[in-house]
Simulated assay, not measured.
Amino acid sequence: MATDGSNVFRAVPLARWRAKKEGIDLSLVKGSGPKDIILPRDIEKFKTTKSAVKTITHTKKKSASSLARKLAEKKGISLERVEGTGNRGRVMMADVIRVIEKGVIPGDGKGMFGRTLPMSQMRRVIAKRMSQSAFTAPHIYFFTDVEMDTLDKLREEVFPEFEKNFKIRISINDFLIKAVALTIREFPILNAILKGEEIVVMPEINIGLAVALEEGLIVPAIPHADRLGLGEIAQIRADLVERARTRKLKLEEIERGTFTISSLAQFDITFFTAILNPPQSGILSIGKATDHLALRDGKVISKKIARFGLSVDHRIIDGVVAATFLQSLKHRLEKATFTSL
């Protein structure tokens, strides 16, 4: 009989032997013999199921070079949490070193308390730029609630056509990028930077989209977004985000941004204040859309509401200008049509 703690699982010897060989937990196998005893055929059947694949994968020791294994053990890093770049995902010493240099050890956090973590090069750059922004540019913040139902409906209507014509899944971010770019056309001062004692309005509207990586945020920018169609924006956005995650962006693609969008809509975060991405003078923050009840023509209806925040450099942009910009963007999104974007 096979046992697991206080539970007992009846299995014939050959079935137990095969389960041990394949790394299969007998508690997950349903027996087909008398009194539910586990037979060899039950082991074979279980191997073909998805749960078997997951179980076997979980119990197998991750492939790693001896040097990588020794270094991981020394630093207290689980190899299961390290992405291998060797043949068939084998973890190499360079992979472990990369995790160490990031300054954040993937996992459940055990062993992190009381440690001093080195800052990665990317984190040092982020720290320097955020300090520069926070202590140099006087920020002011504005918030408004935007009804997202019209935009969601528009996306659903055009989704099949865009997927067919552009081979891309259009996202809400693509609509936001276009809407922000068009609104900046009306308010060029939101596309300005400060140089010495001069305000320089940048000639192109290049909208940056914050992309979260393990080490921090990176902001590739869609060039002249006001002049691109939604399909073109979607294609460029998808390419930039993919290359951001694989560390293949060019410096120019990061530095060309003139305004930034930072969205936490995928989290249960309703609003947040964002720090300017220097030398830019404006950044838009977007929280999660939530259901709100409202009255319309005497009837109770449900509306999807997302809170938008605008942070601006008060040296360049006055409060009335920022408020009017945000109000214009809100109106554009709530009355969105395919032709208006």
Rank of each mutant, 00 (worst) to 15 (best):
R88L: 09
P203V: 00
V320L: 13
D268F: 01
T260E: 04
T55R: 10
S51A: 13
K110R: 12
V96Y: 01
I261R: 14
G231Q: 01
S311A: 15
E198Y: 14
M112N: 08
F272R: 12
M122S: 11
P13Q: 06
F272N: 13
A52M: 01
D297F: 02
L71K: 14
N191T: 04
H224G: 04
V125N: 06
A210V: 01
S6L: 10
K75V: 02
D239N: 15
E44G: 03
V241F: 10
E83G: 04
D145Q: 08
F159Q: 09
V241S: 14
F166R: 12
L14R: 12
P223R: 10
F267E: 09
T183D: 01
T246C: 05
G33Q: 06
R227D: 09
A64R: 11
M93G: 00
V158I: 15
L79W: 00
A274Q: 11
T57F: 12
V320A: 15
N191Y: 11
V200N: 08
D36G: 05
R237K: 13
V321Q: 06
K299S: 12
I207E: 06
A64L: 11
A265M: 09
R296A: 10
I305P: 02
V180L: 08
D174Y: 04
K47C: 09
S78T: 00
G31T: 06
T337E: 07
N87Q: 06
V241L: 11
G257D: 13
F267I: 03
L67N: 06
I189T: 00
G33W: 02
F46E: 09
I218Q: 09
L213H: 05
G5W: 03
R227V: 00
V96T: 00
E232S: 10
S263T: 15
K248Q: 14
H331M: 11
A306P: 01
I199N: 03
M92T: 03
R10K: 12
G76W: 03
L329C: 04
K195C: 07
L190G: 04
S262P: 10
E252S: 15
T270S: 14
T260N: 10
E186S: 12
M130F: 02
L228P: 03
K335P: 01
T339L: 09
G319S: 05
D297G: 01
E197H: 13
A64S: 15
I207S: 07
G208V: 01
A336E: 03
I261F: 10
E253N: 08
K178P: 02
R245N: 12
K30H: 11
I37G: 08
P106N: 07
L28R: 15
R129W: 06
R88N: 13
N191R: 08
T136Y: 08
A210N: 04
G86H: 00
T270F: 14
D318S: 07
F142C: 01
P138E: 07
